[in-house]
């Protein structure tokens, strides 16, 4: 779909195009919200607030060059603004190693599969610190460029690179550990 055209018709008051924008972008915005806070109710309220403000201000709101980028930033700002700071995912130190390593291995043993299933991968990814998961979501799911991620998260592009590298290195390490663990199970 041509975003700019749809946005133009939405600005002119078309409820159909407003609906189109909502249904196209809301699921991704909710998923992104889940990377920022565990409070689902807060995320839903923020989503509603973002779209309601858009609808109210449609006559004066500008036309973003990239609608997805604009909406992801909007929901992030809304969550941070509204969010009780302690409800937002606690920031972990960058060199954090899960103190739950043992229980993590327990879970892996319970999953007991010889190949990497979706469930196990999701589990491994959930071991990453919140900030790394946020960057990974924006990079690999929302498919944004590094400068766009930096703009959304209000951090320098260098930090985005570093966080991405750290996430990948950590994932490799977790994969390695779980492979060793599986080998240990079999021999």
């Amino acid at each position: 779909m041509d975003e700019q055209e749809i946005w133009g018709r939405f600005k002119a008051g078309s409820e159909d195009d407003f609906s189109l924008l909502y249904h196209h972008f809301a699921p991704m915005m909710l998923r992104y919200g889940n990377r920022i806070t565990p409070d689902k109710e807060l995320i839903r309220d923020c989503l509603q607030q973002v779209f309601f403000s858009l609808w109210k201000g449609r006559a004066t709101v500008g036309t973003p060059t990239n609608v997805q980028h604009y909406l992801l930033k909007a929901i992030r700002n809304e969550i941070i603004k509204r969010g009780n700071r302690d409800k937002v995912h606690e920031e972990l130190p960058e060199d954090y190693h899960s103190e739950l390593e043992d229980s993590h291995e327990q879970t892996l043993i319970q999953l007991q599969t010889a190949e990497l299933t979706r469930q196990r991968i999701a589990h491994l990814l959930s071991q990453l610190p919140a900030r790394q998961r946020e960057v990974i979501f924006l990079k690999y799911y929302a498919n944004l460029k590094y400068d766009e991620i930096a703009a959304i998260m209000d951090i320098g592009q260098d930090s985005v690179y570093k966080t991405t590298y750290k996430a990948i290195a950590r994932l490799q390490q977790l994969l390695h550990n779980s492979t060793l663990l599986l080998l240990a199970l079999f021999f």
Binding site: N34, I121, A122, I136, Y141, A167, I168
Partner: peptide
């Protein structure tokens, strides 16, 4: 890349 792109799979309530 394929592993990292899979994180979406976990939350279906969205």
């Amino acid at each position: 890349v394929l592993l990292l792109s899979q994180e979406q799979a976990e939350d279906r309530s969205c």
